[in-house]
């Protein structure tokens, strides 16, 4: 089934076309949501909400961006809204702190755990930028379309996110926090 046939089928409410679109896109969407939230059940909720919107709003997709980019935009919006609400509930800007329990089964996982912990200490938008670029593989134009901003903004924001991630990996705390040693002195 070609992309055009899938889209045409989805617009007509065809089950096979919907399933094909889901099969082709859901692995990346779910992984993006899981890495943004670090909460498997929340990622599941958000993935369901994403695809319900995809299929009920497919007539609004105008084809200017790739269909995957459009779906990622819906998913990222859902996740950022969730993280903002969570941040408000917790009285913080919302870095996720829960552990992902699926990445600790071998030595290589130790490396991945480090990067996941570091990503979790970033602001949600910084984390999203890095995941869209280096996990999903979007170029700056697709990231700009996903986040509805200018390509120049993507470049500067990605630079800031990379710098903050390097800081966290080196120091094990967020650049927005005081250093742990200061807390210990107090």
């Amino acid at each position: 089934m070609t992309e055009a046939e899938i889209l045409d089928g989805c617009r007509r409410g065809d089950r096979q076309a919907r399933h094909e679109l889901y099969v082709q896109t859901s692995t990346r969407v779910y992984r993006l949501l899981l890495r943004m939230t670090r909460e498997p059940e929340t990622a599941l909720d958000l993935a369901q909400a994403t695809y319900l919107k995809v299929f009920t709003r497919i007539s609004q997709f105008d084809g200017r961006a790739a269909i995957a980019t459009w779906i990622h935009r819906i998913a990222v919006t859902e996740a950022l809204q969730y993280l903002r609400r969570k941040g408000r509930d917790a009285g913080t800007s919302g870095p996720a702190t829960e552990a992902v329990d699926s990445v600790s089964d071998n030595q290589a996982a130790d490396v991945r755990m480090d990067i996941e912990d570091a990503l979790a200490l970033l602001e949600p938008l910084d984390r999203t930028m890095l995941l869209l670029r280096y996990d999903v593989g979007h170029d700056y134009r697709a990231i700009a379309e996903t986040l509805d901003c200018a390509e120049g903004t993507v470049a500067s924001r990605l630079n800031r996110a990379r710098e903050r991630l390097r800081f966290v990996l080196k120091n094990s705390y967020s650049p927005e926090e005081d250093a742990p040693s200061k807390h210990q002195i107090l």
Binding site: S26, Q48, F55, T56, D135, L165, R166
Partner: peptide, 29 residues
């Protein structure tokens, strides 16, 4: 940084997600 972020293993959506989406769509319809 690029390599570490990209190195995470593939995580497949849990079984049942598609069924729950489809059921929700049917329910809505």
């Amino acid at each position: 940084i690029h390599d570490q972020i990209a190195a995470v293993k593939t995580v497949n959506p849990p079984p049942g997600l598609w069924e729950s989406i489809e059921t929700s769509l049917d329910s809505a319809a």
